Simulated assay, not measured.
Amino acid sequence: MNTKPIATDESYRILDNQFWYNDCSFIDLIKNKESIVVNIDDLGVRELRHSEDGNDSRTTLSYKFSNKDDRDWWIENRGKKVTIELLSVN
């Protein structure tokens, strides 16, 4: 895995229980990829999996956390701005 960030968003605002990348500065690098590895301020390095398509078959522009504790942390920090470093794309 790359230890040097591929890209960085220094002011990403947490919305809910998922990482919505439509507002992320590096959207073009991660759009519709299967999974990504990111380093998130105060949370650490995590692998996120792309969310499933919506009920209307449109692509959902988000990645989900597989770990409940990570989701809980994300939800608790809703509205906070964090720095997110993109480390790898799969």
Results as ranks from 00 to 15, higher is better:
60 T>W: 08
28 D>W: 07
56 D>S: 09
41 D>M: 07
51 S>K: 11
83 T>I: 10
31 K>S: 10
7 A>P: 06
81 K>R: 14
44 G>L: 08
29 L>T: 06
28 D>N: 12
10 E>A: 08
60 T>E: 07
86 L>F: 03
50 H>N: 07
42 D>H: 06
51 S>Q: 14
67 N>C: 09
14 I>M: 05
15 L>Y: 12
87 L>M: 10
71 R>P: 00
53 D>M: 11
11 S>K: 12
65 F>S: 02
22 N>Q: 12
35 S>A: 08
26 F>E: 06
60 T>C: 09
50 H>A: 09
22 N>L: 10
8 T>P: 00
47 E>I: 14
45 V>R: 08
21 Y>G: 02
60 T>G: 01
23 D>A: 07
88 S>E: 14
75 I>R: 01
16 D>E: 10
10 E>S: 05
9 D>M: 04
35 S>L: 07
76 E>W: 03
39 N>Q: 13
68 K>M: 13
87 L>Y: 05
40 I>G: 03
7 A>H: 01
19 F>W: 08
54 G>P: 00
32 N>Y: 11
52 E>W: 04
33 K>T: 11
62 S>G: 11
44 G>M: 08
27 I>L: 14
6 I>G: 02
27 I>A: 08
66 S>D: 11
22 N>I: 10
67 N>Y: 01
5 P>W: 05
16 D>F: 06
41 D>K: 05
80 K>H: 05
25 S>R: 03
69 D>A: 10
12 Y>N: 02
74 W>S: 02
54 G>L: 15
19 F>R: 02
26 F>M: 08
72 D>H: 00
50 H>G: 02
88 S>Q: 09
2 N>V: 13
82 V>C: 08
48 L>K: 02
39 N>G: 00
54 G>R: 11
69 D>T: 09
23 D>R: 12
35 S>E: 11
24 C>D: 01
34 E>S: 07
61 L>I: 11
56 D>F: 14
18 Q>K: 11
26 F>Y: 07
13 R>K: 15
66 S>Y: 05
62 S>R: 05
21 Y>M: 04
2 N>H: 13
28 D>K: 14
64 K>I: 14
90 N>T: 13
35 S>P: 01
78 R>W: 01
86 L>P: 01
74 W>L: 04
50 H>K: 11
59 T>L: 14
83 T>P: 06
23 D>F: 12
37 V>M: 09
66 S>Q: 09
44 G>C: 05
73 W>D: 06
